[in-house]
Design a protein around this nucleic acid. Structure first.
Lengths: 118, 118
DNA sequence: GACGCATATGCCTTGACGGTTATATGCCTG
DNA sequence: CAGGCATATAACCGTCAAGGCATATGCGTC
């Protein structure tokens, strides 16, 4: 799980995965779709492969990549105890009562790109 | 979501979250539990805070931290389309048919660090 | 078997991140 | 108001990973 999280922390990687979710694709396809250099894509694919998040099929010179979801289950598992919170527990309320100091001044934006640190 | 994934890629941070999942805690508690230096913990808490993953309540000199699950929902959302795959679709089978070249020679290990590339 | 395409890999640079130590801030107590 | 906690921040360093370019490898074609 550690692995999966780490691998998916990379936006490019999630992007690739999302592309592959629609359909399996050869590398060239991904290169075109992501506007990254071919080596960069290949590197990401390697990482994804090593994390078990994609599988490869060799078709002549092409390598067709496909999503593998197994590792994602681990993330899902990790998420489970927390999932209970946003269904049963009164999280959204509670935090609104205490925080108030540095987050959401008025709206209810889920804190997307708040980081201003570095 | 980008943020949440990135933040949770850090094992220490997941650890902290897991600790806070059991109960809200002051920083000193986390320092003790994680065996990290106090500044290190504070930094992680800052990151978690900015990602909206924890909230703080000030109790005298203590700062009590608590889990906030809202950002996790976004991860859950992202996960959703994939989740269908491991329930309905025949992912585990499919990959086993094509891959075969570099993964799981015999068992059914979830492909954590199987590659022998380097 | 030489050429060309598709992909992988090596090497290198750069930037971001985690951890450490030292210090600032805030609050409570005497 | 001086001293001491609890926590945050600053400055700094080492590491590591992502991306670029150049090149190797594999395979099909002629």
């Amino acid at each position: 799980m550690t692995v999966a999280f780490d691998v998916l922390a990379e936006p490019s990687r999630r992007h690739i995965l999302d592309l592959l979710l629609a359909a399996e694709r050869p590398v060239a396809d991904l290169v075109a779709a992501t506007a990254m250099s071919q080596p960069a894509v290949s590197k990401h694919l390697r990482v994804l492969r090593e994390a078990g998040l994609v599988s490869v099929r060799t078709d002549a010179q092409r390598r067709i990549y496909r999503v593998r979801v197994e590792p994602l289950r681990t993330i899902d598992e990790w998420l489970r105890p927390y999932r209970q919170l946003w269904s049963s527990r009164l999280d959204a309320l509670e935090h609104r009562l205490d925080t108030m100091d540095s987050s959401e001044p008025g709206g209810d934006a889920p804190a997307a790109s708040t980081r201003a640190a570095e």
